[in-house]
Amino acid sequence: MEYFLQQLINGITLGSIYGLIAIGYTMVYGIIGMINFAHGDIFMVSSFIALIVITALGVTVSTGLGMTFLALILVLVSAMVIASVFGWTTERLAYRPLRGSFRLAPLITAIGISIVLQNYIQITQGARVKPLQPLIADGYTLMTRVDANGEFAVQISNMQILIIVVTIVLMTIFSLIIAKTSLGRAQRACEQDRKMASLLGINVDRTISTTFVMGAALAAVAGLMFLLYYGVIDFFIGFIAGVKAFTAAVLGGIGSLPGAMLGGLVIGLIETFWSAYFSVEYKDVAAFSMLAIVLIFLPQGLLGKPEVEKV
């Protein structure tokens, strides 16, 4: 029971990170119907930027709480801004020229951009893994159990609390943007019918760019969280996290923001529990099998709208 609870906490933390990345996939897929393959790599790039800024600011675990907090906000903002520039630029250079063209073309350019970003970071930052000392220590012990095997404590670290809180706050903000602002309205309109939206005076190109920027900014949040939580990054983390986040987006129902979050949580939990109770090696197999199973039996995802086949 205690072990289960601990895994639940770990799973939710991991799921929050996947969910944040998944939002980028789901928004882009919703609006232009393409898998932005490079999105996982934007996440990777942003975690490197966060690492650079943290190193530049010289934050360590011994820095005072207030200063760490301020520094992290600065790190977060700069990572979000620069990741947004990356996201905007890839859209502008690699996807916009192909809009309305052959469907597979942007997928290929996306794969190309993904290769470019990975190798760019490998060249500029080195191929070796980058370790970061934990910045936020401590946590709370929720319960302890003492039995013949020794002591087992269920803990939630401050880091996990931070990840979960930040995720909830950002999710709320972005859901409000989509639901209430004119930008969100424009996005939903473009999702429904891009041609009609442009006829009604919506700047479709700008709306799509904004979508990429928003997705990249959230990926940057995930990148920082990932860096702080795991403390190790390399140039290849984007691929596998990207595939899993896309899985999460599909699982939740593509195009749906709460769906992406839910999908992220489900994938995070499956992965954590599978690692905890079965085998760590096959955790990816578990996540991917889940994707296949859901798509086969529930193709519209958990929260997606069913697709009606028009004849």
């Binding site: 073309a105 350019t109 060249i123």
Partner: peptide, 12 residues
């Protein structure tokens, strides 16, 4: 890196 760039350029 060049390979990835070439993929993008040729596709466009």
């Amino acid at each position: 890196l060049i390979f990835g760039l070439a993929m993008v350029v040729i596709m466009i």
